[in-house]
Write a protein that binds this DNA or RNA. Structure first.
Lengths: 155, 155
DNA sequence: ATTATAATGAAAATGATTTTCATTATCTTT
DNA sequence: AAAGATAATGAAAATCATTTTCATTATAAT
């Protein structure tokens, strides 16, 4: 994700906020820019620290409040990890699954692969009697650069 | 899961605790029995309330401490849900996936279906360059009895 | 039985998140 | 462009789940 793309995403999010009756403010812009530009999972405190570089008077409460609105508009989503569930990322459009680096928090999305998933889900539904409404598939590991970082440390 | 099976699981867990140098106490037994017998996700407070029926002097802290030990021994596992991540269930042996009723919290396990999952994981690993170490697959929905409960309410 | 110490529960501490509230900034209306 | 209505802000207080502290009690080894 480059400068132009993240600027585009930021503008889109600000438009969506405004379209939903929310005002555009300096602190809110700082939070939106920070999350929209990041490829990493960010905790509210991470967002706070990074966004304060853009708007130093920013309060942590505003970060929480802005994330809440972005989540409501499905522009960001909470990321659940073995290490905890307080992080967020820019959401992907449509149903996508997550691949997360457990070392640096980098996130990638991959498509659901409905050909493989749907028969499995149907089968489990049939056997269990459950009416299945939602599914989560997440992969955890190490991204390319973290694999390299690990090797060079070991030498 | 019937009376005999849950008694068997309770005994197994108590043995495992003892084998790992932990003492068997009344409050601990009450917590173990409660979780071992349940097919539902339980928050620490749920466990507290239910286990207090067996041992009324039980403190909530002991629930947290016992869950911690059971988790360490991989006898219970934390369950992550859209609605929150504070619940636990008796863990299944081996790698299994979860199916959770979003209405009553009933949990079932289903096997990983490695024939379908492994190629998908390998493919995502190849395309992303990630070294994939772990995966989560969870299905959410309504169990049979909750589907019926919903219908009869509607009538 | 005695003894060392692990476990307990109450209370205090912590950490993340939410609420309250007086002040400030945005956006709409003039 | 100015004024007014009100949404948003940040500091401080409150809340909620969880962890730590500590004096007391219970377990299990001697």
């Amino acid at each position: 994700m480059n400068e132009i793309e993240s600027q585009r995403r930021t503008d889109e999010w600000l438009d969506r906020l405004q379209a939903n009756g929310y005002r555009l403010t300096e602190p809110r812009r700082a939070v939106v820019e920070t999350i929209a530009a990041s490829q990493y999972v960010l905790s509210p405190f991470d967002v706070f620290e990074q966004a304060r570089r853009r708007y130093p008077k920013l309060g942590l409460v505003t970060v929480y409040r802005t994330i809440e609105k972005l989540e409501e508009l499905e522009l960001v989503q909470r990321v659940h990890q073995p290490s905890g569930c307080q992080a967020f990322v820019a959401a992907c459009k449509g149903h996508q699954h997550l691949l997360i680096c457990q070392r640096c928090g980098r996130v990638e999305f991959f498509s659901g692969d409905s050909e493989r998933m749907e028969p499995l889900i149907a089968e489990v539904g049939r056997e269990s009697g459950f009416q299945i409404e939602e599914h989560w598939l997440q992969l955890f590991g190490q991204c390319e650069s973290c694999q390299q970082a690990k090797q060079s440390r070991a030498v």
